[in-house]
Design a binder for these strands. Structure first.
Lengths: 211, 211
DNA sequence: AATTATATGTTGCAATTGCAACTTTTTTGC
DNA sequence: GCAAAAAAGTTGCAATTGCAACATATAATT
């Protein structure tokens, strides 16, 4: 998840110049405050300089879906994340956000911003990475049972850890909203997975058991 | 869905030059043949020059998921579509596919391919568009009932049509695999939607009823 | 430290879904 | 135009899920 900044490979000095040219604006948000709503047609993108946030949607039944966890250097906005009129980004800790117009990022400007090529390459990589993440998410949501959703998400988290253990990046309540399932049904299924010997848990530390 | 070619804005002559430089390869596939399997770590991308294909996955239960419908000018490959070891692209009609190494698309080459900037912009747009599509898909799959999945997919298809009518781009069998639900349960729910006055159908032509 | 709020854990029950096993209709290939 | 294959349409039934309504544990706030 170590998202690199879109300014990777550009000196601080040059970044500062570009930001000025881009008319970038920095804003601060307290925990639990709404950073943006109704992302549709907003041509701004936001970069999280510090803090964390969730991108969420509430449907007409009042069900919350956590669309995406955003961390430092994460980027959000219409192009990067979502079209739709019911999406919000909510700070889950105190945040500093940098807003830039998307067009600036990809269009070469007339002024002296010579690093647009580097920037474009970085944006390309970021978009590719986003696509990979979205596909991972899709693979999980396309599973037909809560059990399979949990197992494929856990599998993803355990990847690259030989001990097949990991710490949930969510509360269990949030996990249910991330997997789009009922919380109590999910808890029941986690209990079943433990009883059936698929996992062991210790709070948010979960270990996948292999035979 | 009108996907523009990644070579949009470049003359045929120059495209031909670039393809040579890229060592692009054109291949033909008959209907129902497998175009690629196990996309993981394949740094090639494929462009559909003619015909249609589905990107599919079979899970260990034998359930098929249609990840994506691919049409003329659609692009697929690890960066554009999916990491994973169980994905295939299957021709749904006779197809011509152009294979190019991804690196060529985004790296400026030493030879005389002067249109890399245009190409990069096109790839950027394509990736953005893909992200939008993936998010639409995610919104559908995150719905908790078959009814809501159907309704939000239908809503998407009816968008921009004042008559709120559209033709399913799928067979009903495929639609079930696209929504990741059981086919017979889906058919039952479609019947319920008709009885409850949400939709009318005539074969694959469906009309959403508004009050 | 006490109070409040939030998260975790449980369970009965009703509704929804998936599965299996069919029939009927439509499409495809010869 | 006929036979075979695929798709569409149905239904009973068992399994899974969501909902509601709790109890308990943990974290946050004053």
């Amino acid at each position: 998840m170590e998202v690199k900044s879109i300014f990777e490979g550009i000196t601080d000095e040059d970044v500062a110049k570009m930001l000025k040219c881009f008319e970038a604006r920095k804003m601060s948000f307290k925990k639990d405050r709404t950073i943006v709503t109704n992302i549709i047609n907003v041509k701004l993108i936001g970069i999280i300089l510090s803090g964390t946030a969730n991108m969420v949607r509430y449907d007409y039944n009042g069900n919350r879906t956590i669309i995406e966890k955003l961390e430092t250097n994460s980027v959000f906005g219409e192009v990067f994340s979502r079209v739709g009129n019911d999406i919000s980004v909510i700070a889950t800790s105190d945040c500093e956000i940098l807003f830039i117009e998307y067009e600036h990022l990809i269009k070469r400007c007339k002024k002296g911003c010579i690093y647009h090529t580097v920037l474009t390459d970085n944006v390309l990589k970021l978009l590719s990475r986003k696509i990979v993440e979205l596909n991972e998410r899709l693979e999980i949501l396309s599973k037909r049972s809560i059990r399979d959703k949990l197992l494929s998400y856990f599998e993803l988290l355990a990847t690259d850890n030989p001990r097949r253990t990991f710490v949930l990046p969510f509360t269990y309540t949030d996990l249910a909203d991330y997997l789009s399932v009922d919380r109590s049904a999910m808890m029941r299924e986690i209990k079943n997975l433990k009883e059936d010997g698929f996992i062991t848990t210790n709070g948010k530390r979960i270990t996948l058991i292999s035979y």
